[in-house]
Design a protein around this nucleic acid. Structure first.
Lengths: 264, 264
DNA sequence: AGAGTTTTACTCAATTTGAGATAGACCGGC
DNA sequence: GCCGGTCTATCTCAAATTGAGTAAAACTCT
């Protein structure tokens, strides 16, 4: 049988249906606090619960790659154009396919992780009825938490797990990539960059050593020659401005102080 | 509509079919050379070409997780029992879903990465008609290579891409995890461990510094008190034996010398 | 027996890190 | 307009880590 004959006879519907979704863990920093984009589900299953933005991948209609599908979901949910998404970092996080994770049918979810600078509130009449940036600290990702009235803190499906994996990936990637700059605008100061690390890692860093380290890693940042127009909100001199350099990996890496005792 | 009503009305076949496969990049080291497990495809598409072992995920029949499916594929193709797979490291590598990557239909492939100690040849009458451990150097993963008669060096589908991603993941993971020990037996010597790094990274390491470094990283290896019964094949004293320690992350990491100029 | 190989340990200079101190710019309140 | 507090940016210094080389002792093969 030739390849052509084989393909002509092949019936894709001969197998049981499996659905594929793309979900996005979108992180940003607002007022020095790490936030994640969540939508409140209007429909069953898990109606009323918070969930990661995402949607089904259709086989035929849109011939889009998984990554494009994730970008589209993110754009829809934030109300951003795909162009405005240009400064947003997007990478594949992992795929979740445990049987029973969706009560409707067998669903395989490809999760993506996105970092972006402070983005506008998604509210404005977009596709998502109820999308919000939620501080990740407000979510109890491990144990079952007491619920505030009207608000369910537990995420739908296995999204708590996916979010936890995304957070760990983000924390790890700050160590050896310049991705922290993806949380900031075009230009930024070293203290602003330090604030990103402190927000994501959840612990204070030594300002002097951080400054020295960032400037010593080749390609991490490059100076613009400018400074901020004023000092900080509570005093201090004007800070020099930098933009992201051309390095894609940091050598040597910026290791976080608490490695949880080397994660034995 | 209640959740129950919704689920009762839900028709999984309302959507276009998408197939999900699990593919495995299985790596091992034989005679100091890094090998990957490949099967020669008997059926179209890509009949006659080498491909990564893998198979379709069925929705209903086997209620198995993606990881279990990967372990099963690996066991079938190597002829190993799932029990013998105990010492094999298995992790998710990534998911590939670009439209057109499989001519039959829209296929989403979840790739897994496996490391194991030198495993027996798979030949013996297993499911896979023609499975072999192939030195990764023998495969031209980038450019189109000239073909030896009867042997196609180009992999089927986008498996060359998946393999390249797996190799890069393996190389990176040796730096900050103790996964190199997964390529070795229960007990091993420091020079054997060094040979793993040299095989995967493809470059020689300074024996003295490597030795000092491995012993100084807490939890990487622990001595057994034994030594090899004889010296090395070409001379030298008997080497002390070690087994893997309990660290899951190496701190500080073993950085490879050539970082490709920091991967700008 | 001798030549060559290998494990293991040691030395030493250069680099990197962690912790602290300081000078000077700047804000807000008084 | 002054002052105390805050913050950026730089410096110091000891401790830890790395890179490169040397060397002693153990062992294999011819």
């Amino acid at each position: 049988m030739s390849e052509e004959e084989f393909l002509a006879e092949y019936d894709p519907r001969a197998y049981d249906p499996i659905a594929v979704t793309v979900d996005v863990v979108a992180l940003t920093i607002r007022d020095g606090v790490l936030h994640v984009l969540l939508i409140r589900r209007a429909e069953p299953p898990f109606a009323g619960r918070w969930a990661l933005p995402g949607g089904f991948v259709r086989a035929v209609e849109d011939e889009e790659d998984l990554r494009e599908a994730a970008a589209r979901e993110l754009a829809e949910e934030t109300g951003l154009t795909t162009k405005a998404l240009g400064r947003v970092h997007l990478e594949q996080l992992g795929t979740y396919g445990k049987p029973g994770r969706d009560p409707r049918m067998r669903v395989i979810s490809v999760a993506y992780l996105a970092f972006g600078p402070d983005l506008p509130d998604p509210q404005a009449g977009s596709d998502a009825a109820d999308a919000s940036w939620i501080p990740v600290e407000a979510l109890r990702l491990t144990a079952a938490a007491s619920q505030a009235p009207g608000t369910t803190r537990r995420l739908a499906f296995d999204h708590a797990r996916i979010l936890a994996d995304g957070l760990e990936r983000a924390r790890a990637k700050l160590e050896y990539t310049p991705l922290a700059t993806a949380f900031l605008g075009e230009s930024f100061t070293i203290p602003e960059l330090r604030a990103v690390y402190e927000s994501v890692w959840g612990e204070p860093l030594h300002a002097g050593n951080f400054h020295r380290k960032v400037l010593s890693v080749p390609g991490f940042v490059e100076g613009t020659g400018d400074t901020t127009p004023t000092g900080g909100r509570r005093g201090g001199p004007r800070a020099r401005l930098y933009r992201a350099g051309d390095a894609r990996l940091l050598h040597p890496a910026l290791l976080r102080p608490s490695s949880e005792d080397d994660l034995r």
